[in-house]
Write a protein that binds this DNA or RNA. Sequence first.
DNA 1: GTTCCACTGGAAGACTAGGTTT
DNA 2: AAACCTAGTCTTCCAGTGGAAC
Length: 352
Amino acid sequence: MIEDARVLREEFVPREVEHRDGEVTHLSGMLEPVTRGEPADTAVITGPSGAGKTCIARYTVGRLREQHLDVRSQYVNCWQNYSRFRALYRILEGLGKTVDIHRRSTPHDELLDRLRRYDGPPCVVVLDEVDQLEALDVLYDLHSLPAFSLVLIANREAELFARADERLTSRLRGSETIGFDRYGLDELASILAARARWGLTADAVSTAQIRTIADAAAGDARVGISILRSAARKADRADRETVTDDLLEEAIPAGRTAVHRKNLETLTPHQRALYDAVDEVGAIEPAPLYEAYRERVDDPKTDRTVRNYLAKMVQYDLLVAEGTSRDRVYRVADPTTGHAASTAPHATDDDR
DNA sequence: GTTCCACTGGAAGACTAGGTTT
DNA sequence: AAACCTAGTCTTCCAGTGGAAC
């Protein structure tokens, strides 16, 4: 019953987008100088997860490139490319200029020098999850290169600017923020219906089921699509022509936890041991947590390293840290709500 | 109110892995 | 083959913070 799995993938960008005309127009307008070969002001896109930030940015930039052959673009996910080196590397990669750059023996500045010497058509760089960058000064450097126009995507603007120093703030002064809100129920339902229409056989999912998914996703398109994908896969494996309501019930929690589980898979064995130690008891103080961690691994890292791991997992919404000092407690984050869970619900192993 | 101290997180430097140069 | 780079990871050291105990 799945006809085109690509449509149900997270990173899929549709040919036409819905319900975001204002945002598309706004971003297009901001990028308009690029079509004349001039640098555009930095655009900042903010909003909750699953509000269509990434999709709209890629769609708008893609459309710009269709209309103007003399524009290039590169998408950088700062979650995966969180260091200065990797972020710059990804941009060069998009320009096809990395052939002789090797990860280990090329100094930082060589990458920036190459970007500086770039004299091709103007390039729009989309930096997604920009708040995951460990050092924001790379934004300052990129901003000083007229050939590159920036689109920054972040969950919350305030947190991003709180980390920016004086130099960067003054550079970003000319930037404009495009705020995205959660999708409404009807909006999300029509987005999901379109995905079902493109990706699944006719009548595989009923209108009522689409609304059920949209309702469960609470305005988060990523979650909605994840649930739809999970339901379709379950039906596919069960050799059914349509999604039954029973399968859909199962797919809702599976779809919701998909993102959470994906993050878990990126953890190193040591980090995973830490997470498991918290998960086992639900909530734990730092000292006993470190002890529990030491018992779980062969060659434990120092407590300072463990604190770095914990901070990283908190940033990834895998753990929640409560209290600032002696009252600090670590909890597992509840994948279904994003908040701390008193008892940890374990992800059902599905959606694969 | 004062002191204590578990905990946090910044800074600096050592170590490791992988690459280049001589 | 040895000497030398570099980025990324981890450790060492430590100042600062703010609940908890007195």
